[in-house]
Nucleic acid binder design. Structure first.
Length: 216
DNA sequence: GCGACAG
DNA sequence: ATCTTGTCGC
């Protein structure tokens, strides 16, 4: 798979994203996905962390070592992380109702970021959450829950969401089988006390810790 | 041509 | 992402 092949696949896949939730969507368990790298080598550790949406407590997790050959190219994340993330998901004992990715969904140059790719690949409703915007936005009000549109190429592709009073916003977008209002609500519910949702925090902590342990 | 550029 | 000390705040 070359970068050009990847870009062509994204353009071809973007129309397949379903920007609305399944009928009666009421997710109970959300899984956060993240990867930690060993510098520029291809070695990595992927983690999936299941959190109970009602309590934001960790209820299951899986950590798997891996390797990637695809380089870091902005816009082509999935081709670097997707295989390992899917193995971490498969290693879970729990079947999550929702996935929360470390990276954008449709807030992407070709409207097909990592979260869209993960969503289509698994069929599970997926939300993209990024720490840095891809596009432009005006700062939301300082109160938790405030948000402003994230715009790219003249289109609203997501939201800059303040998850805690006074903290920098995070950037939420549709991955697959969810709408932006539902995604915003879920991310806020998953972020009761920190800037990032507990799903992301747990996954990040797990793969980072496992990576350090594997080095020594 | 130049800058910007998710993790 | 990762490399890194001290420092501010709960």
């Amino acid at each position: 798979m070359t970068p050009d092949d990847a870009i062509a696949e994204q353009v071809r896949s973007a129309p397949l994203v379903v920007p609305r939730p399944p009928a009666g969507f009421a997710p109970r368990v959300a899984a956060g996905l993240d990867v930690a790298y060993v510098g520029e080598t291809g070695a990595l550790v992927a983690a999936a962390a299941c959190v109970d949406i009602a309590t934001a407590e960790l209820v299951d997790s899986a950590v798997v070592p891996g390797h990637t050959d695809f380089p870091y190219v902005p816009g082509l994340f999935a081709y670097r992380e997707l295989p390992s993330l899917l193995r971490a998901l498969a290693a879970l004992a729990t079947a999550p109702d929702l996935l929360v990715c470390d990276g954008h969904g449709v807030a992407h140059p070709r409207r097909f970021g990592l979260a869209c790719h993960v969503g289509l690949e698994t069929g599970i409703p997926t939300i993209g959450v990024g720490k840095k915007p891809l596009g432009h936005y005006d700062p939301p009000a300082t109160a938790r829950g405030s948000w402003t549109p994230l715009v790219d190429g003249g289109e609203v592709v997501g939201r800059a969401l303040r998850t805690q009073d006074g903290v920098k916003p995070i950037f939420v977008s549709v991955g697959h089988r969810v709408d932006i209002d539902t995604a915003t609500d879920l991310v806020l519910r998953l972020s009761p006390e920190h800037r990032q949702p507990e799903t992301t925090r747990a996954a990040d902590r797990l793969c980072r810790r496992a990576l350090k342990a594997s080095l020594s």
